[in-house]
Write a protein that binds this DNA or RNA. Structure first.
Lengths: 181, 181
DNA sequence: GCTTAATTATCTATCAGTAGATACACAGGT
DNA sequence: ACCTGTGTATCTACTGATAGATAATTAAGC
């Protein structure tokens, strides 16, 4: 893994733990064994690093999901897969969703970071809307509404689970998603 | 309003905008016209200020709600009132829930702040559980589950609304709460 | 194949600014 | 005299950022 990717990985851990202001170039540099000035070579400013972080996180998140249509072809239920991906982010990493945290503190972020964070939510709502639209009982409007509600519920369930330090809360809170069509 | 309360108010704005690391004693002091050393008089450490902030926020939040039973007596639906209180926090202040943000970054917080943040969620789940238990069709377990889900949905709806900079998302996401019993 | 030139990635050293925190003095009210 | 609240002055540590030097790698020209 390149130093650049190592930097992003280290930064992701810090941000998902305590937000955008919870990492410094020096910390990252120390962690991967270079000097803080070298971090500026890869990312001119902290905002550049933050924006790239959110961008990659979004792309990876969606790439790991696959398209809703493909999942159905594979005999899987898109919403279940989606829920599972959120749950893994919480239980395996023991951390909040990167963009969930950034989204919460959006008004305190540099513009380019804010923009990439917004993109995460746009793309996820789009994905979920497609997923819900596969059920023909849903109108287009209903699909969008359900998408927004599902995303909100999952981000919130993560947040509350973290706050209470109890991952079973995520299960309880998100159970409703599986019952509803 | 005492300087101490002014400090807490200024800190609340900062934290609700960008998290716990988004304010400094100097900023707060400048804003209310005293010196940073004087802030240390009121709050020995930053953690003390943060903990007191979360404590007061929780107490005010619950006090403004009143008890679920009383609301019913007044002919109001507790869940509707509860939702309304969240919505006001978002639309009037144009800011995220204080403890929602702190909860998301809980692992990066001093212990005493973490503890007070946790208390917010405990008390809110308790309140919602009581509210749902007033409908006798709900078992005790169902009431708790619904409480956790409702809290998660509302915190998440706030978060997504902030991230997308669109308060109508909150309405869309939380609409389901009013239909369900 | 060798030399030169450019690019990449790192270093050392340093900057001005800010962080939280402390010691101590001082005023005003009780 | 004491307590409350504030101020001055200062400390150490850390922040993001920059300048300039130095290896290490790659590409181009002959």
């Amino acid at each position: 893994m390149s130093k650049k990717q190592q930097l992003l990985k280290a930064a992701e851990d810090k941000v998902r733990t305590g937000g955008y202001n919870n990492f410094s170039f020096r910390e990252l540099a120390d962690e991967i064994g270079i000097k803080s000035s070298s971090v500026h070579y890869h990312f001119p400013t902290k905002a550049d690093l933050g924006a790239e972080l959110a961008r990659q996180y979004t792309d990876n998140f969606l790439a790991n999901l696959g398209s809703p249509e493909d999942l159905v072809v594979q005999g899987k239920k898109p919403i279940e897969v989606y829920l599972q991906q959120f749950q893994c982010a919480l239980t395996e990493d023991q951390k909040m969703c990167l963009c969930g945290l950034l989204g919460a503190e959006t008004d305190g972020l540099p513009d380019k970071v804010k923009l990439q964070t917004q993109r995460f939510f746009e793309q996820n709502i789009q994905w979920l809307t497609q997923a819900y639209a596969l059920d023909e009982r849903n109108t287009e409007q209903q699909a969008t509404n359900r998408a927004v509600a599902a995303l909100s519920l999952l981000e919130g369930a993560m947040l509350v689970s973290k706050a209470m330090n109890d991952n079973s809360i995520f299960i309880t809170a998100s159970a409703g998603l599986l019952e509803a069509r």
